[in-house]
Design a protein around this nucleic acid. Structure first.
Lengths: 232, 232
DNA sequence: ACCGCTGGATTGTTCAACAATCCAGCGATC
DNA sequence: GATCGCTGGATTGTTGAACAATCCAGCGGT
């Protein structure tokens, strides 16, 4: 997702008329990266475990060189850790990294929401909130989780910055990798809904300062929770 | 610089006693990437020009596959643009990208300075200001430019977040690439010194809000200047 | 318990080949 | 004369094999 979108010049306010064609066939290396990303997000590859080039190459039926290219891509996204002459390992988040990740989130999320956004972008935030409500209604824990990620992604999208979007996407991928389904019990999601609703409402009402404060408070609390669980 | 530092667990408060050894020999691909980064920053490779794999491979005396790995790394940093089946090109910043870049800078720089920082980190900011003054004293335009980059890098470093640091490093590399020496006349540097001094003073005095406001104002003005020059 | 060695496994890098794709040029056609 | 279709050459994408460099576990010697 990082190197996939190179339409930085493609402004958002484009007429739907001249819709871009995008029938590009992703390269093999990209598909390998995509597959690995999927397996990482799904938890098939546990943090810290080693990925051997030859094995993966054979499993996916591609050349070792191609696997290497995919590794490079994922290493650049911090999903894999490359240790020279030793191998690549699934990234692990240490105690310090949790703070690190939340520092980034505070910077870009709060800044994005404080600057407001176009009505369409705000509507996208609202949509994510609703998505969460629907998931909660049917007790879909997994759906609840991704709805929350959509919510925070939509907040960053308010800023209409491609770079912030990809940064956020990477951070979310990192969190998916580490705070995996297994580690998140239902009680985590308890407060989200109400809080997201509150933030979204403030945003819609144009109370940007308040929205920012609420979001900041949420992030701080969330960091505390995570640190408490993944001990340090 | 992006994938080079994987000591995310290495907290800042480390005793100088157990200094890290770092005698790692960078891989060939990394050295190729380094060389290209240098040529990009130095302006030998103009934005938009095409880089042919075979040519670079021969010039540097390495294999085409290795060049490819280096390309992947630089493409992930947005310094190169990979167009599938066509080739890699030196990245160009369109009008919209300028706003994009500054949006990121506003987010992470302002957020970093508003949170303050340890005395050592603040001292580093001060050091960057002094570096600028020394460069100005001898009319060293180039030194003045890099001093300013050090200044803003030091501000982000206040947050003590590895991720923010690498993000900022990439952004600065992008700007170096585009706003190259040739394009920046001396008059650009005119205000910097006084303003950096002011920001730094506010920071040292603990007036974080004021420091943030000053920095924000600077970034906004700088964006305007850049947009004015590199037409839109 | 410490040391050095050694062999096997894995990564790093190169090379050569071929398929897939793009692009410029060049006729053929209306 | 502009458009279309083709074709040939150049470049990228991908593979497979080979070899060098490096690491690591195990083993034996002291």
């Amino acid at each position: 997702m990082a190197s996939a979108d190179q339409e930085s010049s493609e402004q958002a306010g484009f007429d739907g008329a001249r819709a871009r064609m995008r029938l590009r066939v992703p390269s093999v290396a990209e598909r390998v990266a995509e597959e690995l990303r999927y397996q990482l997000a799904e938890g098939f590859l546990v943090p810290g475990s080693k990925l051997t080039e030859a094995t993966i190459a054979e499993d996916l039926g591609v050349s070792r060189n191609t696997v290497r290219e995919a590794f490079a891509e994922l290493a650049a996204e911090r999903l894999l850790l490359r240790q020279p002459n030793k191998g690549v390992y699934v990234a692990t988040l240490e105690a310090g990294d949790i703070h690190d990740v939340y520092t980034v989130r505070r910077a870009i999320e709060v800044s994005s929401i404080r600057a407001g956004g176009s009505p369409e972008r705000i509507a996208a935030v609202r949509a994510a909130v609703d998505e969460g409500k629907r998931a909660a209604a049917v007790n879909d824990n997994e759906g609840l989780g991704s709805a929350n990620q959509h919510f925070h992604g939509a907040i960053v999208a308010l800023a209409e910055s491609n770079r912030l979007d990809t940064i956020m996407a990477q951070i979310l991928a990192e969190m998916r990798l580490y705070f995996h389904k297994a580690t998140m019990n239902a009680h985590f999601y308890s407060d989200w809904l109400a809080e997201n609703e509150q933030i979204c409402a403030a945003l819609e009402a144009g109370h940007l300062e308040e929205a920012g404060d609420l979001l900041l408070a949420y992030l701080n609390r969330s960091e505390q929770q995570q640190t408490a669980i993944h001990g340090d």
